[in-house]
């Protein structure tokens, strides 16, 4: 019985370690932000569940499996919440979801650098315009180009699904009012 438990927990632990490693590798190698989030959530679900279950089998009848179960429950409540908040914040500030441009060539990197003073919705204009003209557009021009597009996108997003986030509601409503005359871009 002991041997059986050992074998089962060894299998669970090693599989969990493999999942964790693959997820870490994916976070390094994936081309853009949302695919990286996918890889990271692999380690949060598969890796954490397998490792914690494997440790629970080794705990015996003490307090240890209950503590591990508490960690398990807590991780499984919080990591989807954190992932949702992260994706929501990234989508709101305009991280590009494209990893290939129109011709099918892979983009080198995501161009949104939120750490500096550049406007966030620049990437829409940047991938099409300034990749050919070699970064001649200043930040202000890019913002002027991108702002109507961003407003239309926000309006269509608002129309598509009603329960938007609390922080998004006010600017989205304003943008929807403003972009009512313009043709809304893509309606999913």
């Amino acid at each position: 019985m002991d041997l059986l438990l050992d074998i089962a927990s060894a299998i669970l632990l090693l599989t969990g370690g493999f999942f964790v490693f693959v997820g870490g590798f994916g976070v390094m190698r994936m081309p853009e932000f949302f695919t990286r989030m996918h890889a990271a959530s692999l380690t949060d679900t598969g890796g954490a569940a397998l490792i914690l279950l494997g440790l629970m089998l080794q705990g015996g009848l003490t307090l240890v499996p209950f503590k591990l179960a508490a960690i398990f429950l807590f991780l499984f409540l919080t990591s989807p919440t954190a992932s949702y908040a992260l994706a929501n914040a990234a989508l709101l500030s305009g991280v590009s979801t494209a990893c290939r441009n129109e011709t099918g060539a892979p983009l080198p990197e995501n161009e949104v650098d939120s750490a500096d003073s550049k406007p966030a919705s620049k990437s829409v204009a940047k991938t099409s315009a300034s990749r050919t003209s070699g970064r001649k557009t200043t930040a202000k021009q890019a913002a002027e180009q991108a702002a109507p597009k961003a407003a239309a996108r926000k309006a269509s997003k608002k129309a598509a699904k009603k329960p938007a986030g609390k922080a998004a509601k006010k600017p989205a409503r304003k943008a929807a009012k403003k972009a009512a005359g313009k043709p809304a871009g893509k309606k999913s």
Partner: peptide, 12 residues
Amino acid sequence: QSRGVRRDAEAE
């Protein structure tokens, strides 16, 4: 997140 929304409003 609030910083991104604020920056969008400034761009508008």
